[in-house]
């Protein structure tokens, strides 16, 4: 039994790293704009599908990955410029609908470009499983874990050590004040969208050899990433990472120890419980309401 639990944990952390990467994108955009971007999962899908298409066309993997990420960043910028900026000042619900509309639109584009089939990316360093005591994992999982760790560190350093990063954080605390001290909020907004689109694309490319991809793959990933960001306290990038890992481990343990059929219900039950006791997530900052 302990051996099994060890494998459950390894599985949970791998899956959790994936949720964390998607959740991080949610947190970044929320930070800059107070908008939850429900098209975040579609960024992941676009990155994966573009890379797969380029590799299939004979490109080397590294070049395909870079170009796919760059293209997804462009999509993120376009989305910000033509859908988010014009709707400035709309209600929370209206922006939610806009990003949901964007998600459906991007799915529609992917459907026309690549059809309905599932596609796989070849694993970066082979398919031979690695043994970790009694547990096994794929080399690709190490890429996901390593990639997640690297990206999370970079984002953390960027937000806390660079001037632009600090400016981005300032927008999340108080947009008017940020503007008053000379931060161009629009530029920050574009930066946030470009950055999270890029993060999403990289996440998509890293996981595509394990999970495959199709035009609809973004729905599930977006949902799990959103949950990760919320559990961690939305707007806190490191909280999103913790939330993602927690969710992944919980799903694996729920499936392994209780019931694999009800594992999603178990995970969401946990999310509800967290929110009932910590209404702003585990690591969210409490905000006083203005009257």
């Amino acid at each position: 039994m302990p051996e099994q639990i060890f494998q459950f944990l390894v599985t949970g952390i791998t899956v959790g790293a994936l949720y964390a990467l998607v959740g991080l994108g949610f947190a970044l955009i929320y930070n800059a704009s107070d908008v939850v971007n429900f098209a975040q999962g579609e960024f992941v899908m676009l990155g994966a599908m573009t890379a797969i298409a380029l590799v299939a066309a004979g490109w080397p993997l590294a070049l395909a990955a870079i170009v796919a990420t760059a293209l997804t960043v462009v999509v993120g910028l376009l989305l910000e410029r033509f859908a988010i900026e014009p709707a400035w000042g709309a209600s929370v619900v209206a922006t939610i609908i806009i990003t949901i509309g964007a998600a459906i639109f991007l799915r529609g584009v992917a459907l026309l470009l690549w059809g309905k089939d599932f596609h796989a990316l070849p694993p970066f360093s082979g398919d031979t499983p690695l043994h970790l005591g009694s547990a096994t994992l794929l080399p690709q999982s190490l890429w996901v874990l390593g990639g997640a760790a690297a990206l999370v560190t970079l984002v953390h350093l960027f937000l806390n050590r660079t001037l632009i990063g600090k400016a981005l954080l300032a927008c999340s605390f108080n947009r008017a004040a940020a503007q008053l001290v000379g931060i161009n909020v629009n530029v920050m907004l574009r930066l946030a969208y470009g950055l999270s689109a890029g993060l999403g694309a990289i996440a998509g490319i890293l996981i595509a050899p394990i999970t495959f991809s199709s035009y609809e793959a973004g729905i599930m990933l977006g949902l799990k990433g959103f949950s990760a960001a919320i559990v961690g306290g939305i707007g806190n990038p490191m909280g999103a990472v913790a939330g993602g890992l927690l969710l992944g481990v919980l799903e694996a343990l729920g499936a392994g120890l209780i019931s694999s059929g009800y594992k999603d219900a178990i995970a969401f039950m946990f999310v509800l419980m967290v929110l009932f006791f910590e209404p702003t997530g585990l690591f969210g900052h409490k905000v006083a309401e203005r009257v």
Binding site: F8, V10, T11, V15, L18, T211, M220, A252, A255
Partner: peptide, 8 residues
Amino acid sequence: TDMTTQLT
């Protein structure tokens, strides 16, 4: 995206 838990 991962069924190793069930297979374990």
